[in-house]
Nucleic acid binder design. Structure first.
Lengths: 342, 342
DNA sequence: GTTAGCACTCGACGAAATAGAGTGCTAATA
DNA sequence: TATTAGCACTCTATTTCGTCGAGTGCTAAC
């Protein structure tokens, strides 16, 4: 089952070549490369073996070979070299992230754009999960009759708003009081426990406001993890430049998979548990992505992972380069969120 | 130059037919329709006339005719019938807009989705412009050292945030004071004048904070009209189902035009001056949209238009249906923003 | 174990043939 | 004078067929 050094070398050469050319690799192409002093016939024999072992596939009898998912997996785990970023690439990324990015939304968008611009694949990023954030401030701003805007701010500087109904008997001053009391009492409470804590603690000075508090708690729980999460996507059309998507139906398929952002959100949420993840072709849960690879990384404030981002591309992907880019971006992004303007 | 009734009728029949079939319409197809008791030869003569007048085009000698932009313009201006919505369509729209949509973002997204689902075209919507809104509340929430979150709320219940730097000497209590003073002083000031007004009025109790106020004003002006505006897009892939986009390059073109959302923002902003607008093919400023039509409508709070939304489709579009849908959605949306949860 | 040689397979590409839709024109008709 | 039937013609789309070339697998020789 294990591959000897020569098979490994040949397989790597094939994969590298296929990643560049996107067309099946023949034995001659490999035998001509420096490093192998072997005839094409020998390579052919080895390739036949590799095919039997499941690392290569043949589109049809008289074509060259293309790597299987299994081959990419091996490649990623054992033989890939990380490609460090060029100065131009770093410049390009910095250009996207330089401006005074004072809103999360904008940071997300710029990150996605930078990623897709540098990699030429499709980039995606999920907004930060607030669960592990801590409460900093709650503010109720009265609007027209019977409504108020509730604003919840976390220590990391993220804010969520919701318009909520306010019973008639609660006036502006009372809203102010409730804001102050809640802020003081629940300051630094984890966001994912906030609702629960408020409910438990309703006996105190806010007892007579318990129905209203209920409304607030509901809105808060609804906000911690937005139900229509705003995954930012960039460069979906990049995929159309790859020969694997010159078929309109393939393209349609891919774009459909990517447009339903719920899918991507699930993907990214799952991926946010691991610092980096690479999912190759059929390893994807989503059938529509079964000839794509997904590479993700996380971003964080301090130690706490907030969310993840990544790129989607053909399985024939520049894994080495992509990983380096993600690593770099992860650092940039985390730094931005921690030190700098939000 | 003017068309007699018969030419008009024939032209309308051709357009209606072409909208359905997407393939050039021959003389026989028209002569067989009820209503015209004319042979195909007569129709042919009329069609030749219509072509000479610029209303029809012939892809090649032995094909039928297709309507020109000029024909669609005439169609839209004079002969189109509005198609009222079916119950199913209304249900579909309501289904998208029913839930407690408590955040602008969500409303935008749902609207776009409903639009693209009902029309099968590509839908877009711009977020509300705050310029004509009035200030309701300013709140500064201290974050980690040297930072605060500035939150600006308008009377319509929209909020914008920005993380800003805070000089060391300004403590929490002082931030609170500044918030209160600004809110009191500039309550109900139009958002697009707010920055200016604050600058003018700096002499009062906040004189010693003028550098900090400068920072705030900068952030405010930056926020009133976001520079990377979050145009929501939905159903971009719908276009791939239309035969006019079975060519990958056409598809690429369209998707590229639509992905750079700046373009769409400009489009929508310009369109927000008119309650409804229809732009056909070459009438579009953007060359990449020159074989698309764009139909837009506005949404408002009270009398004040806030922004616009619309759909993009092939010039061969169901204009009547689309207009009705937009009309209906415009009402829905404005109602939602005015009465109900934001 | 490696290699040269060769017959074989299969898709890509282009030329030629065919079918069919639709036209424009002419001459007949009402 | 407006309409129509008839017909030759044009152009595209589709199919068929032959050729080319890349690449293979196998065998026999090194």
């Amino acid at each position: 089952m294990d591959l000897d050094a020569r098979k490994l070398g040949i397989l790597k050469a094939i994969i590298d070549e296929y990643i560049l050319s996107a067309s099946p690799v023949g034995s001659r192409a490999i035998s001509k490369q420096d490093g192998f002093n072997l005839s094409s016939a020998t390579i052919r024999n080895e390739m036949a073996d590799l095919e039997e072992l499941g690392y290569l596939e043949q589109p049809h009898t008289s074509a060259g070979r293309i790597p299987s998912d299994k081959a990419y997996r091996l490649y990623v785990d054992q033989m890939m070299q990380k490609a460090s970023l060029t100065d131009d690439e770093i410049k390009l990324i910095r250009a996207h992230l330089t401006a005074k990015l004072d809103e999360v939304e904008t940071v997300m968008k710029q990150t996605a754009q930078a990623l897709s611009a540098v990699t030429h694949y499709t980039a995606m990023i999920m907004p930060p999960m607030l669960a592990a954030n801590r409460l900093r401030h709650i503010q109720l701003v009265p609007l027209r009759e019977g409504r108020a805007l509730m604003i919840v701010v976390t220590t990391a500087g993220f804010a969520r708003e919701a318009v909520i109904r306010v019973p008639e008997e609660i006036n502006t001053i009372e809203l102010e009081r409730i804001s102050r009391v809640l802020t003081e009492r629940f300051r630094d409470c984890r966001m994912d426990q906030l609702g629960e804590r408020i409910m438990q603690d309703m006996g105190g000075e806010l007892f007579e406001r318990r129905t209203f508090l209920n409304t607030m708690v509901e809105a808060i729980e609804h906000k911690i993890e937005p139900d229509a999460p705003n995954v930012q996507l960039s460069g979906a059309t990049n995929m159309l430049h790859f020969p694997e998507y010159s078929d309109v139906n393939k393209a349609k398929m891919f774009l459909a998979a990517v447009e339903g952002k719920g899918t991507l959100y699930e993907l990214l949420k799952r991926a946010s548990r691991l610092e980096f993840s690479i999912t190759i072709g059929g390893e994807n849960e989503n059938d529509m992505l079964k000839d794509c690879s997904v590479v993700t990384a996380t971003y964080q404030i301090g130690e706490e992972p907030l969310g993840s981002f990544g790129i989607i591309g053909p399985t024939r992907m520049h894994y080495g380069k992509v990983l380096s880019v993600l690593e770099f971006m992860s650092r940039c992004l985390s730094e931005m969120l921690t030190d700098d303007d939000e």
